[in-house]
Amino acid sequence: MNVELLLQLVVNGLILGTLYGVVAMCFTLIYKASQVVNFAQGEFLLIGAWVCWWLLTEFQLPFYAGFLLTLVFMMVFGIVLQVLVLRPMIGEPVISVIMVTIGLSIFFQAIMKWLFGVFTQPFPPIFPIRSVDIFGLNVQPAYLMSMVISLLIMAGFAWFFKYSRLGLAMRATAFNQQVAQSLGISVKQMFAVSWAISAMVSALAGVVFGIVNGVSPALSFFGIKVFPAVILGGLDSIVGAVVGGLIIGVLENLAEYVDGQWLNLGNLYAIAPFYALVLILMIKPYGLFGTEKIERL
């Protein structure tokens, strides 16, 4: 047994897992607020990362400026997407809405390939050093940043839904749209806000991942990876999304370890989350934190 490698992989898994958790939260946010299963979640990362990369390389903007512009762009993008494409679909059957989001996913992937090509493009270096040593483990500063940013986002979400006026209104909308309207909340506005936040935060995750691994069309794979995480956590639970993301991230890396040490299949890490997905659906279809309606005592 190679303990050092195992430890390294678990740490990698946790770092990647927090990023999965962030994207899963974004997915859950849209699902909770507007009951849309968004298959184009991965493309949000892709678009965000490419836009940021483009701003940084084409216009030589400093990182923070480019990054903020990207967030603004994604906010507008999320709202426009919701208003133009998803709003007319309100009241249509679930399967139609799913088809629309799958269509969006293919559409955006193609557009991004057309605009930016199919090759991996590295981000301009943001950190001067390539790696730091923490307790003898080799960690890239970009990874550390990714983890810190992810944790900050999670804390931000927790604060937003617990204390902000808009967050409470979104929870009310998720609970019951008619009740929300009776309280003076515009449900349409809440849908748009949820898409805007989801697009912005996904883009953030996309940029972070892009800084670590370079930007490529493969980024949209996140959108698929998020499913095991979300299903594991329970489709409508924000906390579940985080926990699910962490578990899937670690699971992936453990699979890599097992594969590398003994099985030598070569790609178990890519497949393991989906085995987990099938298992969860068989054993606990509502996930760890999925809705169980409160019974009144």
């Binding site: 006026r165 409470l168 019951n176 008619q178 009740v179 309280l183 003076g184 909340i185 409160i294």
Partner: peptide, 29 residues
């Protein structure tokens, strides 16, 4: 609602997965 007319719907319809204080803050949306 913004014009000052508020309906308390049949069957209470409070937001069950929030605390009473959160429900009250929601009323002031």
């Amino acid at each position: 609602v913004r014009r000052g007319l508020f309906q308390v719907m049949e069957g209470r319809r409070i937001v069950e997965d929030m605390t009473p204080i959160e429900n009250l803050r929601l009323g002031a949306y």
